[in-house]
Write a protein that binds this DNA or RNA. Structure first.
Length: 309
DNA sequence: AATAACGGCAACCGCCGTTTA
DNA sequence: TTAAACGGCGGTTGCCGTTAT
């Protein structure tokens, strides 16, 4: 036996709030508070709204000291760094930005901030690719000259990978796999001039045998509450777990990597911001079919294995 | 000037852990 | 103990204003 239904769904008004409704709700809550019961509130004040709808309206719009729009660079940085650390936990992110609601931040991220950062990232990648191409051409020219001098057909002994791939294991562009190598850390955080949560957490986990020390993780973020930094530790461990899941999924030949988290989409999106520049080159190689599939699977599994060590 | 495409944002939906009868 | 509502959250939708054609 449960409780009575919260409201009569058929007789509940939906859609935009009128100024009259706003005024009713605002004045009542300012005088009496919510009473800890949102469901009963609309009936008390004669609003034909669901309690959930009243709560949302109050929290996102009517509550005092709410700021709308006009996000500062500092706020952008905080949102980005927290998103990288904890994903789309908008309520937690909002708690670090006084006057901002989770809904506002979520909308801001989805409509502007993400695009802004992707644009920045693309520009950087393009510049890097041009530079790499120049270096590669120069090296090939030298190599061909040397081969010609030695009388060797350079194509007959060409490796599958460019030299740098042999030195460093294959970076992977699939979702839920994140490069934790602090020396090979990504450009995402550097775009924002903020401390890199990945490298900080990675060091913490490695150095302390899994005992997170939030004070290390939040160097430069001393004002953040302790519980938040602890949450980051937990979340990073989950990311590590997902990395391991991804590795085991390679048993199917490396063609797919599965994720079960509901955050996978968000992290997948972010991965494009987070991966090293080598990633796009690797994808290009695969798409052109210049690398045998079993070689790709082998190199990928080697890469995951390295990540787990 | 008309209209199609796009972007921003408020509000709704549905899920999940907690609470309550 | 259990079933159902509550409260909170993140994802998605749809409206509306703006911009491009």
């Amino acid at each position: 036996m449960g409780r009575a239904p919260c409201c009569d769904k058929a007789n509940v008004k939906k859609g935009p709030w009128s100024p009259e409704e706003d005024a009713k709700l605002k004045s009542y809550i300012e005088q009496n508070g919510t009473g800890g019961n949102w469901i009963a509130l609309p009936q008390k004040i004669g609003l034909k709204r669901c309690g959930k709808s009243c709560r949302l309206r109050w929290l996102n719009y009517l509550r005092p000291n709410i700021k709308h729009g006009g996000f500062s660079e500092e706020e952008d940085d905080i949102i980005c760094s927290l998103y990288v650390s904890i994903g789309s936990r908008w309520s937690i992110i909002a708690a670090q930005l006084p006057g901002r609601t989770d809904n506002d931040i979520k909308n801001y991220w989805n409509t502007r901030l993400k695009k802004k950062l992707l644009g920045k990232q693309r520009k950087e990648q393009q510049a890097r690719r041009v530079s790499n191409m120049k270096q590669e051409m120069k090296r090939e020219t030298n190599q061909n000259l040397m081969m010609a001098a030695l009388g060797v057909n350079s194509m007959s002994s060409a490796p599958y990978w460019p030299a740098e791939y042999s030195v460093h294991p294959m970076p992977v562009s699939n979702s839920s796999i994140i490069d934790y190598d602090t020396n090979n850390q990504t450009s995402f955080t550097s775009l924002m001039n903020i401390p890199n949560p990945f490298s900080m957490v990675s060091n913490t986990i490695t150095n302390n045998g899994g005992n997170c020390q939030p004070s290390h993780i939040f160097q430069g973020f001393e004002n953040f509450p302790r519980d938040l930094s602890e949450l980051v530790c937990v979340n990073q461990q989950q990311i590590m777990d997902r990395t391991i899941d991804g590795f085991y999924d390679m048993s199917n030949g490396g063609s797919t990597i599965t994720t079960t988290s509901t955050e996978s989409t968000s992290w997948g999106d972010m991965n494009s911001l987070v991966y090293s520049p080598l990633v796009s080159d690797y994808e290009g190689c695969c798409q052109q079919g210049s690398i045998p599939q079993d070689a790709i699977a082998f190199e990928e599994s080697r890469y995951f294995a390295m990540q787990m060590q």
